[in-house]
Design a protein around this nucleic acid. Structure first.
Lengths: 219, 219, 219, 219
DNA sequence: AATGAATGAGTATTCATTCAT
DNA sequence: GATGAATGAATACTCATTCAT
């Protein structure tokens, strides 16, 4: 109606995607809050300001919705980290590959400790729900692959450039890095208050630095 | 006594604790397999070779059962690790505090990768289920406290004895260590096959060693 | 309209309220028959010709359903009594306030003894279930308030008009009247056959008449 | 042991009956509090300071226990009323049959309003639970028979002695009287606070007096 | 596209009862 | 006589999914 002039009439696709975004936002909230099983489709629809039936209508099934959520959350976190690294680069000037890794890890933990988005918590929750052997969230496995690849690429680049020692295995260190940040993040949820987050961040950075930096001249 | 040979004359107390152990075994199995929510009390009772009602009868509620399971699993894992360390000590002779840490971590991962007990998987699953903010398994928080304490004590002892560098914070490194092994273990579940477990173990050992070992003479 | 002949084209709202009425009918039946506790939601759904899950779907909880039932039953009984009084008025002509009370009580008992509707029995059953101290059916308390008010208004009107003696307390007589009809109705259920219902009706009428009528000239 | 001397060693029968009394006390409490269905045998055993299994052991089934409770409660209330009437007789001197009825009713309500014993509440609760048509507590029907008989005997005696008018039906008035006190008592439970108990007692007395007293000479 | 009515399977929990000690 | 372990049926409530509107 009155949307005629400047406001670009929303296409079907856009309207669809608006609904979907709202639903995924609500899902992230609720999954972060209650876990996957207790985040009912009805509650997701309602928190999104829509009907109880909309989630099924859009995603077909709960599994599909969670899959989509996992994917979107991973993208979203990736973006935050890239943005953070970019900020660091502008502040500090050039960063070696090792520095990139350290900064990335640190930014992830900083965001997670200080100002976690629902997506971040939701992704962790979804990860946690994959531990049972009969469980599988296809989106998670894919997210891991992407993540491993990113770390491994960085490590290998650093090895070529000399900022990372050459005798380490990039693949297993990718697992180690992702495991460390996920594990530390997961622990901080239960033990909030017990853990001094700044010190933990420092320790992670120091530990990775010690492990990845080229060996100093040892006599 | 009145214990006529091998006759199944058990006292009430014996029957009770036998039942409980059987139920906890079954619960560990099923929780590891399906997760907490999908491990129904009925299925636990039946897998224990008993009735559907027995779990509630014994533990009063599902939460209480999970609590008990978490505690027992933590104890059980602790024991495995102590036994493994003991074996290592007998094989290698004296171990420094740093070595103790490295060996412990390695043994945990070895067991987890190669021959995980239901308890170990179950504990990880229970941990994963604590990620939602509204969730809480009292037993987990306690298990963490015990675990942190163990690592921190080791680190501090090592610092006094000189096998661990003095300028690190024992508490935050405890979080890091537990986070690392939990996180790596969790990842290995989803990405079994992707991850070369031996290399990951080596990387963890190397990384911790680099971080904790007293600094070599740097020029 | 779009209401094609008698076709079962019902709007959502119509379907909803039809379902609810059917469920409340079934609930009245079953509560009257078995009591609240033994009238399971599943049985109510099924007797209503619907699924086991429908009662919860509509009313949210069993308590809410019972509440609604109590309210509806009270309304329904009220209506029967009003209709009965109206019939009496048409038959006999003008009725004094005292007569209104006597006729109302008599009609209630007549219906209850001779041709009780499920609602009437159900309301009595619900009332009986409020006797335990920890129990409460909010709908009942409200039903009582309405009922007391009705009787008290009548009494006071009669006192002003002179058909009821002035020295009685309208509130406590309201309790007495409601207590009497409820109590007598309740007894008649257990002792059906023992009690000659016509005589009891007469006795109630006589007793109330003697108590409420203006004092005759006593020498 | 030390019970040897004066303390009469308890016979089996006595011990049995001690246990039973304790169980019935506990049952009265719990039934009054929660209703029959929610007063579990286990809770009764435990409140009696015994084991969960004792109630079944003694009474065989829950129904049998409730039966026994109903019987004992009725006896107990009867005794209170007799005692109260006795007190009144000593205080006021001779009482006509009409006075006996009025005093009995008044005492019942007084006890119920001011200082109800668990038995009294329990009996009312049990009565309430007999309203569903498929329900039956054999003890209640018997209690009613005894009660009706008592009132009817009194009325007939009064009619012969001239203290009660001759043209009323003793049986239906028995129902009326018991219904009135039960009904008023039942209402007072839900509407405690709404009801001015003293005024209600007065109204009951006045109403019965007006109904039963020999007709004054009406011109 | 969107709503929400309806379904039915699943689950924790309660509880009377049985039975071994 | 007394205990309490064990059973299994019953039941309120949750929730993904289907389908009519």
């Amino acid at each position: 109606m009155s949307e005629k002039s400047t406001a670009p009439r929303r296409t079907q696709a856009e309207r669809r995607s608006e609904s979907e975004e709202a639903l995924l936002d609500a899902a992230a909230d609720l999954v972060a809050e209650r876990g996957i099983e207790r985040a009912s489709l009805a509650s997701i629809g309602e928190r999104a300001g829509a009907s109880r039936g909309l989630p099924t209508h859009h995603f077909g099934s709960k599994d599909a919705l969670i899959e989509r959520l996992a994917r979107r959350a991973q993208d979203c976190i990736q973006d935050s980290m890239v943005a953070g690294v970019e900020r660091a680069r502008r502040a500090v000037g050039d960063l070696s590959e090792l520095d990139l890794i350290l900064v990335s890890v640190d930014i992830y933990l900083e965001i997670f400790f200080d100002n976690p988005s629902p997506e971040e918590r939701a992704l962790l929750v979804i990860w946690g729900s994959t531990f049972p052997s009969s469980s599988s969230v296809e989106g998670m496995a894919e997210a891991h692959r992407r993540s491993y690849q990113g770390w491994a690429d960085l490590i290998e680049a650093g090895q070529e450039a000399g900022s990372i020692r050459g005798d380490i295995d990039s693949n297993s260190f990718s697992v180690l890095i992702l495991g460390m940040i996920r594990g530390v993040a997961g622990l901080s949820l239960t033990d909030a208050g017990v853990v001094d987050t700044q010190l933990v961040r420092d320790s992670c950075r120091a530990s990775l630095s010690a492990a990845l930096a080229p060996q100093s001249h040892v006599t």
